[in-house]
Amino acid sequence: MYPNDGFRELGREECLRLLATVPVGRIVYTRKALPAVLPVNFRLDHDGAVVLRTAAASESARAVDGAVVAFEADAVNAVAQAGWSVVVTGRAEVVTDEAERQRLEGIGLCSWVPAPEEVFVRIEPDLVTGRELLAGRTLYGLHLSA
């Protein structure tokens, strides 16, 4: 990051704190050798892992199981031209341990589209990065205009 570019790098703990404040993010994975992005609802687990819940038969559950993925979430104020973005990169795994599945049932995560058989997908946070836009266009004395 360049000095005075209007962004502030966020530390890991601040990134995880911000992630916990929004309900929707995007998982980035590979589908047929091409990048794919899917909006999803999620929860953070106690150790900072990102947890998703989806249909067991979904293409995305099969595609991400055992793969390294990225997960991004943000909050943006378009009028003020300010906000933040956090990216978690790590290995995604479908949770198969029954005790762990039962524990995850208690975190309050529901699938947007309920299915007869659902799975939890857990993304281990190997790399957590983020940045905050500090001042938007007002940083350089520019005024917002339509």
Rank of each mutant, 00 (worst) to 15 (best):
A67L: 04
A67C: 11
A67H: 13
V68L: 15
V68S: 15
V68G: 12
V69F: 02
V69Y: 03
V69D: 07
V69M: 01
A70T: 12
F71P: 05
E72G: 06
E72T: 15
E72I: 12
E72M: 15
A73L: 12
A73I: 01
A73N: 04
A73R: 07
D74P: 09
D74E: 05
D74A: 05
D74S: 10
D74T: 08
A75S: 14
A75T: 04
V76D: 01
N77I: 13
N77H: 09
N77F: 10
N77E: 11
A78M: 05
A78W: 14
A78N: 06
A80N: 13
A80W: 03
A80Q: 14
A80L: 15
A80F: 13
A80C: 11
Q81D: 15
A82I: 09
A82Y: 00
G83H: 03
G83K: 07
G83T: 01
W84S: 01
W84H: 07
W84Q: 03
S85I: 02
S85C: 10
V86Q: 01
V86R: 06
V86E: 09
V87A: 05
V87H: 06
V87T: 15
V87M: 11
V87I: 15
V88H: 04
V88M: 12
T89I: 15
T89V: 14
T89A: 05
G90H: 04
G90Q: 02
G90S: 13
G90W: 05
G90Y: 03
R91S: 01
R91V: 15
R91Q: 09
E93R: 13
V94P: 09
V94R: 12
V94K: 04
V95R: 09
V95S: 08
V95C: 06
V95N: 08
D97K: 15
D97Q: 12
D97F: 01
D97E: 13
D97S: 11
D97Y: 00
E98Y: 07
A99M: 06
A99T: 11
A99F: 03
A99V: 11
A99K: 13
E100S: 12
E100I: 03
E100L: 06
R101F: 01
R101K: 15
R101I: 12
Q102S: 13
Q102C: 05
R103H: 01
L104H: 10
L104D: 13
L104P: 11
L104R: 00
L104C: 14
L104G: 08
E105N: 12
E105I: 00
E105A: 10
E105Q: 11
G106I: 04
G106K: 00
G106F: 00
G106H: 08
G106T: 06
I107D: 01
I107A: 10
I107N: 12
I107T: 13
I107K: 07
I107Y: 07
L109G: 08
L109D: 05
L109Q: 02
L109I: 11
L109M: 03
L109F: 09
L109W: 00
L109A: 08
